[in-house]
Design a protein around this nucleic acid. Structure first.
Lengths: 175, 175
DNA sequence: ACGTTATGAATGAATG
DNA sequence: CATTCATTCATAACGT
């Protein structure tokens, strides 16, 4: 039976409608930060994941049938996923600025985490080449990404190390 | 200051591997059940969703190449969904966002109007420090505020003068 | 309750 | 690199 004392931070707002992910002190032993969420929020998360699961399944099915029979001219597109759930704005916009796809991001993060800090020119070329398999990308994009990523992770470091006394006041949700 | 007593349900597990979303009693007023999760767990959820996103994209790619090869008439699945969608930067949480109090806003506006445009790092610190007397605030908040304030006041200028650019929140038609 | 607007925050790119 | 700018997403606030 673990008891946790939750003290709501920043009481500067009277009518907090449903801001309810708060930081939490665990007072048994150390100090541990956890999130608190309502059933509703958790439900939302579950739904989001469920939607993905559903989409994935449908796509897999689709792919299977496609590869199985080649002559299916009328594949019923019953596999519409209703985009309103998770993808609230399925705009068909042509963005002018590059946005990494999920796959690309994953790869980039992985490389970044390997700590091989400096991405040499050669390296950049390679990465860009690999990433181009998963979507439009240029070497400049890769370069910028690493620049920004490093800078921002650094900034985060400094910011958090400022004054971490145990005062319950601090400890805003990490950015 | 709301105090919440968390008692872990079914304490039949010592080494809580990662089943540790527990129910919670709120003892102020009514009884409210919420879940508690560590950052780590939240991260896990995020990753799960990210993985789904990744898989989905890959599947879409697969499908695209398949349909491309085989000239399947009428099967143009526009499976495109914006990568921005739900987890812009893998953020899932209902992020709580800072909202300046009236007093804070007043002060900020005043400083902004003084035209001392660039708020240096040091300045930011001071301002944040002062504003913290009037409510929860972080240096990042201050930084962002000035950033946004400047950008938007500038945009307004431009918009009113010559051709009216689209408002900030438009959605542009695809290519 | 629900759609709109205002605005805090995230981030790709540019600039020094 | 360090900062700044520009654009866009996401949501608090607000009107209906």
């Amino acid at each position: 039976m673990t008891k946790i004392m939750i003290t709501e931070l920043e009481g500067h707002q009277e009518n907090k409608t449903q801001k309810d992910i708060v930081n939490v002190h665990v007072n048994n032993g150390g100090v541990m930060y956890v999130k608190v969420m309502t059933d509703e929020q958790l439900e939302t998360l579950r739904n989001q994941i469920a939607v993905y699961a559903s989409i994935c399944e449908q796509l897999v099915e689709m792919h299977k049938s496609l590869t199985a029979q080649q002559d299916l001219t009328g594949i019923s597109l019953s596999l519409y996923f209703s985009p309103y759930t998770c993808f609230h704005g399925h705009k068909i916009t042509a963005r002018q600025r590059w946005t990494p796809t999920a796959v690309q991001l994953q790869i980039l993060e992985r490389i970044f985490d390997q700590g091989t800090g400096t991405p040499s020119k050669q390296k950049i070329k390679e990465i860009a080449s690999e990433l181009s398999l998963h979507g439009q990308i240029s070497e400049t994009n890769v370069y910028n990404w690493f620049q920004n990523r490093r800078a921002r992770s650094k900034r985060k470091q400094l910011g958090s190390s400022s004054n971490n006394a145990e005062s319950e006041q601090e400890s805003r949700v990490a950015e």
